[in-house]
Every structure is written in C-alpha cells, then in structure tokens.
C-alpha cells in the first residue's frame, strides 16, 4: 500500500456511502420500466483499436429489418459508433434520445450515429419504441454474442459492451475514441467538437 491509501480509500468509501446520490436523473417516461443496477466497474475491457486505424468493418441486423454495414457509409458520411451497455437501463435510456434531439446537428456535420448494443433485436426494438423511436440505425451485436464489440475491444466480462464512442471519418479511419465510464453519459460537446474538427479539416483540403 502506498501513501495514497488513506485519501483513496476515503474517496471510494464516500462514493459507496453516497449510494443513491449516484447522480442519475430519471425521466418520468421510464418510471417503473427501467432496470436499476448498482454503479458498475467503470471500464471492464481493453480497447483494441486506436485513432488512425481503419475501423473494423461489420454487418449487423438493425431494428428496422435490414442489415447495416459500416462500409456502406464509406465516402458518404462520417459515422459515430455509439455502443451502449444495455437496453432498459438508466443512462442508456437518455443518451440516444439526446442524440435524437440534435439529429439536425449531426446532419449538418455530415454524420450519422449508429447505435449498437449486445441485446437481441426484439429487446432493442421494444426499448427504442419505449423511447419514442430513434431516428438513426440501431444494431444488435447479439449473435455471435458481442462479436463486433469484441473486435473493438470493448466487450465487458458480463457480455455487455462498454459505453463507447468511435468517430469514423468518410475514409473509414477512426478519428476519436471515448471508452467512457459506463456509469456516466459521455459529454456531448466533446463529441460535436470532434465532428466539427473533421469538417473543418475537409474544407481546408
């Protein structure tokens, strides 16, 4: 044990003691419909891609029936891959409605969000319906279980994925990675800044 033992243990214990004051704001829409988990280990995997790599391509089934490949956006749109851990959980149930609200900003930045979880399609369908519909592709990485999450190195020990964002530019290259603390929502401003930077870069060329 190091000299930092005392303060570190203090901070951890305060957080444990705080318990319910964990800091989630629940929408009335999800009253009684959301599974409440205790705070989870922030990150439980090791990301296996890095900025500058070509994003591993994949084809996954979407809730609207068609199969969607990352490569179909090549040369057309910037892509925000938004992996979230699980349907019907508190943080996830707000993250995508937030992206829905600023759909026009993503459009203006020549980007599309692709939402991915390791849930099966019927659960994803029911959940997104509960949220009032999601305007971007929502894909299921259920079978082979978590294959795509695994390729990106963000499959957690319990079979869910991390709460992770990957910005992939039009040439298919990863330009930004945020494997976020699973208990928190990633800041929207930082994501938008990344997309703005991509667009500025393109205009300069």
């Amino acid at each position: 044990m190091s000299k930092t033992t005392f303060p570190a243990a203090l901070v951890v214990a305060i957080l444990v003691g705080l318990g319910v004051a964990w800091g989630q704001v629940e929408s009335e829409q999800f009253k009684g419909k959301i599974f409440h988990a205790e705070p989870l280990k922030p990150i439980d995997s090791r990301v296996s891609v890095k900025v500058g790599d070509t994003a591993p391509d994949f084809t996954l089934p979407s809730i609207t029936g068609e199969r969607v490949s990352l490569s179909q956006y090549r040369g057309k749109k910037n892509v925000v891959l938004s992996f979230v851990p699980a349907a019907f959980t508190p943080v996830c149930s707000q993250q995508w409605p937030g992206y829905r609200m600023i759909q026009d900003m993503f459009d203006a930045l020549d980007a599309t969000v692709i939402g991915i979880t390791t849930d099966n399609l019927p659960s994803l369908f029911a959940w997104t319906q509960e949220m009032g519909g999601i305007p971007f592709p929502v894909l299921s990485d259920f079978w082979p279980h978590g294959k795509v999450s695994s390729e990106y190195g963000i499959l957690r020990g319990d079979g869910t994925s991390e709460r992770a964002l990957f910005v992939v530019d039009k040439s298919g290259v990863i330009r930004y990675i945020d494997v976020h603390d699973i208990n928190e929502r990633p800041p929207l401003d930082r994501l938008l800044q990344q997309l703005e930077a991509l667009n500025k870069h393109k205009t300069k060329k």
């Binding site: 044990m1 033992t5 005392f6 203090l10 214990a13 305060i14 957080l15 003691g17 705080l18 004051a21």
Partner: peptide, 18 residues
C-alpha cells in the same frame, strides 16, 4: 488501520449525506 479508518469515515460521510 488508517485504510480501515478512512473507509469507515467515508461511509459515515456518505451515509450522512443519505
């Protein structure tokens, strides 16, 4: 012991907030 004390203190602070 200092770690144990810190843990107890922390839980106390956290619980008092609760």
């Amino acid at each position: 012991w200092s770690a144990v004390a810190a843990t107890l203190l922390g839980i106390l602070i956290g619980s008092s907030s609760n």
